[in-house]
Design a protein around this nucleic acid. Structure first.
Length: 293
DNA sequence: CGCATCCCCTGCCTGC
DNA sequence: TGCAGGCAGGGGATGC
């Protein structure tokens, strides 16, 4: 599920139920996700009040009243589900029935108001860890991370510096979170199609011989921003999983131009091409060979 | 260092 | 129908 728009959608769903609320108990239902939990993980979260829920790249960062930040990554198949307190529509019923848990519900946050937030992740590529707030910026996860695509820092000059001399494909360079964060296989494909740029061309080909931004960088950046903004507005893309915390689906997948559209006619006005699929660095690339150069 | 490949894991879809 | 194989939105480890 989660590239930047999906993670941002999850953040917006969780924010109202987490921010300013106390986590009275953390129910950890297995010893590991992608990585082992630290032995005292649940104890360190229990009793903390979440002061803010932020997003950095594809990570969720829950700052808490202690000196640690809860860092969460959804991997490929992670999702959160919010369950309101049981019996809220029946004030006379004080019997709070436990929300039914399924096989891949790995972590349950019990909130002070009786609601629960459940993390589900069938493939367990996601993870959670606690990092002291003071060490966050220098942590290995974030230290070498690239810039946010929706902020002011993404400029042609910045990308020229990252892409100069690089022989790797433009697609691989955009997926590399050390350059720009947040893009994944879907949104790289969509952005490159909109920009009319081939995923096969080298990253370095967007930079002049003297290391200055070539003419394609500015429009590519604008395209990346536009795609991400539209996807966030649509609540992300829902392929196999639910993107949103209330179980509803994002709908950006209905606006895909190339992703998962092999053999479909290219929708660019005047283009007679057909969307093709091939493997690049072990992952599927969708593109229109006729209009992406 | 840059770059490519493999791998973690489960579920779902396809083709035989 | 059953089963093997391939593939899936991410990214860390390894090796050349």
């Amino acid at each position: 599920m989660p590239e930047l728009p999906e993670v941002e959608t999850v953040r917006r769903g969780l924010q109202p139920v987490l921010e300013g609320r106390r986590i009275v108990r953390l129910e950890q239902r297995r010893a590991n996700l992608r990585f082992p939990f630290s032995p005292d993980f649940a104890e360190r979260v229990a009793g903390q009040t979440v002061t803010s829920l932020a997003r950095r790249a594809k990570y969720l960062l829950a700052d808490m009243t202690g000196d640690e930040v809860l860092v969460m990554h959804l991997g490929m198949s992670g999702s959160f589900r919010i369950d309101a307190p049981q019996g809220t529509d029946n004030p006379g019923n004080f019997h709070h029935e436990r929300a039914k848990l399924s096989q891949h519900d790995h972590v349950v946050f019990h909130i002070e108001d009786g609601s629960t937030i459940t993390y589900n992740d069938p493939r367990r590529f996601g993870f959670m860890l606690l990092i002291p707030r003071a060490e966050l910026a220098d942590h290995a996860l974030f230290g070498k991370m690239g810039i946010e695509p929706l902020g002011n820092a993404l400029t042609p000059q910045y990308l020229a510096g990252k892409f100069s001399g690089r022989t790797t494909s433009l697609k691989a360079a955009l997926l590399d979170q050390r350059n720009v964060v947040g893009l994944g296989n879907i949104y790289v494909a969509e952005a490159l199609w909109r920009a009319g740029l081939s995923p096969k061309r080298s990253a370095g080909s967007l930079v002049t011989r003297t290391g200055r931004p070539g003419k394609h960088l500015e429009p590519l950046i604008q395209t990346i921003r536009a795609v991400l903004h539209e996807a966030i507005e649509a609540g992300g893309s829902s392929l196999r999983d639910h993107a949103q915390t209330d179980g509803s689906l994002g709908y950006f997948q209905h606006r895909f131009s190339v992703y998962d559209r092999e053999h479909v006619a290219c929708s660019r006005p005047g283009c007679a091409g057909t969307i093709e699929k091939f493997t690049q660095n072990g992952r599927s690339t969708y593109w229109c060979p006729a209009c992406q150069r």
